[in-house]
Each structure stands twice: as C-alpha cells, then as structure tokens.
Design a protein around this nucleic acid. Sequence first.
DNA 1: CGCCTGATTGATAAGTATCAAGGTCGGTGG
DNA 2: CCACCGACCTTGATACTTATCAATCAGGCG
Lengths: 247, 247
Amino acid sequence: MRTNLREKPREDFQKYNAELQEKMKVDTLRQCRLFRGLSVDDIKGLSSHAAMVHYKKGASIFEEGNPADFFYVVQDGLVKVYKGTSTGKILTFTVAGRGDTLNATAVSGDNYYMSAQTLNEVTVLKIGRKSYQAFLTEHSSIAIELIAMLSSRLNRECDRVVRLIGEDVEQRLIISLFTLARKFGTTLSLTREELANCAGTTTETAIRVLSRLKKQGIIGCAAGRGGIIISDMAKLHDLVVEDEGWI
Amino acid sequence: MRTNLREKPREDFQKYNAELQEKMKVDTLRQCRLFRGLSVDDIKGLSSHAAMVHYKKGASIFEEGNPADFFYVVQDGLVKVYKGTSTGKILTFTVAGRGDTLNATAVSGDNYYMSAQTLNEVTVLKIGRKSYQAFLTEHSSIAIELIAMLSSRLNRECDRVVRLIGEDVEQRLIISLFTLARKFGTTLSLTREELANCAGTTTETAIRVLSRLKKQGIIGCAAGRGGIIISDMAKLHDLVVEDEGWI
DNA sequence: CGCCTGATTGATAAGTATCAAGGTCGGTGG
DNA sequence: CCACCGACCTTGATACTTATCAATCAGGCG
C-alpha cells in the first residue's frame, strides 16, 4: 500500500525531530544556574513540562502586572527584562541570553513583576507555573541556589542604586557597556536606545557618550545601525570606577 | 551570718535580672519576620547565643567591607543601614527599628555588604556568624521565609531603581517620608540630612521640599532640630504617585 | 524610489547640586 | 547664670549635568 510506504519515513523523521528537540530543551535547562547541582534525570523531568516557543524581534513575552502563568528560560536570542517608570521611561534590568531565566527570582506575587521583550529572533522554554513550583518544592536543593541567586541579584540592584546616586551618566553607560561586553562579547547587537535604557538615560545622551568613546578609540567606527563594537576592552575597563574600594 | 543574709537577696536579684534579659531577647527575636513560624523553644535556643549590646547615638555597628562576624537584630532604637558612593555620598537603604534585622539578607559573602550606624540610643542583639548559620541550617523552614524576604527586598530595590530614574527628587522625598511615617509613625526623629540620604539627594534640597510641604500644611511647624512631624498623612499620601498603575 | 527606523548633532531649558552666608537651638564650661 | 560653641536648619545665588526639542542624515526594505 502506498500509504504505508510513505508513512514509515515520516514517522521516523517526526520521532527523530522530537528527540532532537527534547535534547535541546534539556541542554538549555542544564545551563541554568538555578538547576546546577541537579541530576540529568531531574532536569529531564522538568524538561518534559517545557514547551519551546519562538518569538520574532520586538515581540513581548510577558508584561508587568499580568498573571504570571509561566516560567521562562531563554534558549536562543536576546531578551530584555525591564520595568517602565511612571513617566514613560524604561529601565532595562538585564539582557538575558541563552540559559538565563526571565523570572526565576520572581517568587512572590501572582503577577509578572517586570516585562520581557525580545531584542532579536528568540526561542524560549516555557514552563507552566504549577509545574515549575512543584519542581521547586520537590527538589529542595534548589532552594539553596535560589537563595544565592536572590542574594546576588539583590546586591547587584543595591549597587545599581548606589551608582544611580553617585555616578554620572557617562560612568553608568561605561559600566553598562562593560557588563554587556563581558557577558555577550565585544560585538553587541543593541541599538543606542537599548543601551540608554540599560543605563537609565536617553538615546541622545548615550549617543553623545559613545561619540566621545569613539574618539578615544574605545568604540569601533563600524558601529551604527543597531550595533556597538568595542574595540578596546582594556581601555574601557580602565574607565570603570570601581566602587568596591578595597579589593 | 551576715554574708548569708546579704548574699541571698543579691543572688535573687541577679537571677531575676538574667531571666528578665533572657525574656527581652526572646521577645525581640520573636518579632523578627525571619523567625515567624518557629516555636518559642526554637527561638529560645537561638536566644541563648545572642548578646545584648548597647550603642550610643551616632555609633557605628558595622561597616561595609569588614568581615561579617555577627548577625544583628535591633532591640530598641533606630539604625540606618546604608552604603557610601564612590563620590562620598550616602544612600540609606533602610532605617531599622525594633525586630528588624540588619543583615539577614546578606547571605552570600564573608563581609558586610552595607554599613550600619545608630540614629539614637540603640540596643541590639548580636549573634555570632557560626551560631546564626547553624541555626539556619537546622531550621530549614526558615529558608522559605528567607526566600520571601529576599524576594520582597529585591522587588523593593528594583522599585527604588525605577523611581530614581523616573521620578524627581520631590516625589522621592515624599515617598521616603510616607514610607518612614507608615513604619515609625508621624513623628520622625530624623535630621534633614538623614531624610536626604534616604531619598538620595542633598540636605539643602530636602529642606526646600520640606518647606514647600510645610506651606501646604502637610509638615507640622514644630519640625526642625532633629525631627519631622507629619501633620496631614492623608494629604501626603495623595501626593504619592503610585507606579503600581493597576491595583 | 520612497518610507521608516535608527543615528547624529545642535540649541535650549529644567532640575539639582554646589557654594556661600547666616540663623536657631540646646548643651557645656567658665 | 551667661556666653559660647557646635550641630542643625534655612535661604539665596550660581553652575553644571542631562533631558528635551528640533532638524537632518544614512541605510535597509518593501
């Protein structure tokens, strides 16, 4: 029968495809800091609840204040996690990449505490709130990692506050650039506007600072049209004022 | 024998005194959010490791960067918990009162992450780092409370960041006043400088805003010399711009 | 080719910090 | 008891940082 001859390879292909996807999901979850220390089997258990979802550039994954029905992990692409201010500005708290969670530390509250929007083509893993919470309570060793994550994030936000009070815009932009470059490499695909949002300033001010840095040879000339290239990371690092003081 | 006749009451007195102090310590610890849900016996166990220490006004309890040898709970008085900026300014993250911990959320790191200084006569409970950590691991139910505390503090700091970007100084001062008054009542014994540090501004600017509020009848005229009296809490509340948006 | 987004530069204005100069009150020592 | 001193409060003038507004430019894409 013709149908049989046709169906057989298609089934194989589908099975292969499903296995591949499952492998990718597990791979991604294993890169989460939150799940380190867990066995592969544990992660496979969680992975079975995870759906792979694709977003195009500029799409909203979730918005501040909406019911937090899902827990997200970035599989591919860049996602900005931000909050809007009462005056319509935006502050980007983090740019999440592969293996980063979007809302792991949002433990309390039934609603998303921030918004998440894609900066390019993005694939995420999406896990139902219930499944995620059940997984957390089953694997109590995560609690320790969660506390560590929360604690370090809290410190980071406190530092951000101190910098907002103590440092001028130029310094904040430099720190944003440095932090982003350390995480994603020296070729950043961010618009000036996105960078400005990271530092809590305006596009124009960000551009003016970048121009100055370009004159100093720290930013490459090939910048522009949605990208920033850092050509002298060492010099950039020298410009960062450490507020740690004693080291 | 004379000695006997004398010693007896003194022993009684000392015993009574020790019991009283122990009771005070337990009472204080029971007011800690971190320890709610624990039995009185559990808390008594922790209390036995706690020493009551007195500080006079303006004293430093611990300083950012020093080895974090102790865990502190405020028994009486006000303590500001702050960080200095690289430019010499100060940002007060919280004013701690009775039952508040000074460094409970500083889980990671071996050094104090902030500084703590008394705002008036203060009594604290001081528990050795080891004893505190042992207690935490023994009573794993605290982990849940700790996560909740960390999470809510993280949210609060993120909000602070957003307000620093989005709101002007006047609004930040109003929010600081409102928050302080809700916690400590409408008679605040804070200098203008301390209030300014809470809002991340300068003394002069804080004074100018307070003058305006005084004209509007929100701040009492009896203010000045180390105190602020809020005479119209409702009107103050009306001035607070909620950035929650939907409620 | 024309539109649209993002980058860029300049001019201007608003918000705050900074600097300066008293003023007030409470405590302390002669 | 009084005078002084120091900590805190207050107000004004000025400067600086950065946002805002406006205009132009460059490149990608339908």
